[in-house]
Design a protein around this nucleic acid. Structure first.
Lengths: 126, 126
DNA sequence: TTTGTTATTGCAACTGAGTTCTAATAAATT
DNA sequence: AATTTATTAGAACTCAGTTGCAATAACAAA
């Protein structure tokens, strides 16, 4: 599928991801936009934007779904592989600008890899 | 807390993890043991066994919770860090016997790391 | 062995993130 | 302006995981 039409929903959601490499949970997005967009719409548009290679998603702690901007991805190829860092103090999630290489596992045919790192972020570490 | 008493529930659950390095989802465990144990009990005992360093848990695709045996962990120290491999064909999850080093991130204070690899397992790759 | 203490269990009801269905709406094309 | 069809809102639903409480069973002390 993917996004085909320019709609208010798409604009509003893309606005949220304009700045920085910070990820946003769907729960947070629903909360921020609840007066303007329906929950179902948010889930669907995010899904479309991921199909288009505009955003990527992953699971944080408590199995909540998070989204962040992709860089260098397209409808056909998702090449933006990097670790995600979730702060155990404030809960925020960053995309780490660290190059990840997919490891060679002789016994398995590796397709993708997800790395979630936990600890204290820049602001929260004492 | 952790497990203090030897009960039927603990024995039944530990039996499931006797062989191999294969992880088992909670859903699967509830399914296997539903005639013998209550769902709530299963969730609670698994949680205790994790506190004790006997099992470790992680999230697979669809944010389902999985458990697998720990090796070399105790009530106070969880040192068994390794990637988990989930097959996109059959859905099974293996603990990979690969040593993982926690990366140095200058800007963040890293505490733990979770790696989920996707692809085709030994049985499912063509 | 019996009694008392308290961890553990079963059950029912609940929670909440994410999904599904359908009718109404609004892009985009003619 | 009319037509087509993707998109949206809303309500209802799904289901993994949790909570509260009364009943039960492991274990220790007598």
């Amino acid at each position: 599928m993917g996004v085909v039409r320019k709609t208010k929903s798409v604009d509003l959601l893309l606005d949220q991801f304009k700045s920085g490499s910070e990820a946003i949970s769907v729960i947070e997005l629903v909360d921020r936009l609840s007066s303007k967009l329906n929950k179902t719409t948010i889930y669907r548009v995010l899904n479309n934007l991921e199909d288009d290679g505009v955003l990527h998603s992953f699971l944080g702690v408590n199995s909540l779904k998070w989204y962040a901007k992709c860089s260098g991805c397209s409808k056909t190829k998702h090449s933006d592989i990097h670790p995600h860092f979730q702060c155990t103090v404030c809960g925020k999630v960053d995309c780490l600008p660290v190059k990840m290489t997919i490891p060679e596992i002789p016994t398995h045919d590796v397709k993708s890899i997800q790395v979630l790192i936990n600890g204290a972020c820049t602001n929260c570490r004492a």
